[in-house]
């Protein structure tokens, strides 16, 4: 009944703590694109792929008392922190299933900045295009982020690294 909720709880558990809604969104998207069994539907928004379903799922998990959401003010804007509470730990222990290699990928992604994960998820969104076409898309759709070609190369390299971790 709560299989999809459990997977999100597992991501937060493996990460320990995730700082920022954008980061959580991108981590789940990247995991989904790596063929981990996430079902949330994503659309392209201003910060790249975004899932309204995941936002709802997280809210449900907060309402059900399984995860903690802490809001804090950081240089003029609100930032959210997500972590598991005892109830969530218990829920996961009782009903959770192992997702091989998820832990390693989630931990690696959690060490990256949300700016970089935004870039990686955007590359994955346009992965069917050639590298040059992806670069053009990134420069046109995200001019304010000013991603350099070097960063885009790092993004591609990181995707390969995650694929290796998953194997």
């Amino acid at each position: 009944m709560f299989e999809d909720h459990l997977k999100v709880v597992k991501v937060i558990k493996e990460a320990g703590e995730i700082v920022g809604r954008k980061k959580l969104q991108k981590m789940v998207y990247i995991a989904k694109k790596l063929d981990f069994p996430f079902q949330e539907k994503y659309q392209f928004h201003f910060y790249g792929p975004y899932s309204e379903e995941l936002t709802l799922r997280i809210e449900e998990l907060c309402n059900l008392g399984l995860i903690e959401e802490t809001k804090e003010k950081v240089s003029g804007y609100s930032q959210y922190r997500y972590s598991l509470n005892a109830e969530g730990e218990n829920f996961l222990e009782q009903y959770g299933k192992d997702i091989p290699k998820l832990k390693e990928c989630v931990r690696s992604m959690n060490e990256q900045s949300s700016r970089f994960l935004e870039l990686v998820s955007t590359i994955l969104f346009f992965f069917h295009l050639s590298v040059d076409e992806v670069k053009t898309k990134i420069h046109t759709l995200k001019p304010k982020q000013k991603y350099t070609d070097e960063e885009i190369q790092q993004g591609y390299a990181y995707i390969e690294k995650l694929k290796e971790i998953k194997q």
């Binding site: 920022g20 809604r21 954008k22 928004h45 975004y50 936002t55 709802l56 804007y77 609100s78 930032q79």
Partner: peptide
Amino acid sequence: DSSSDLPYDFYRPGEQEE
């Protein structure tokens, strides 16, 4: 089954609602 809606939102820098 769950339903959720945000009737209107304004831009808050750094947030994800987009």
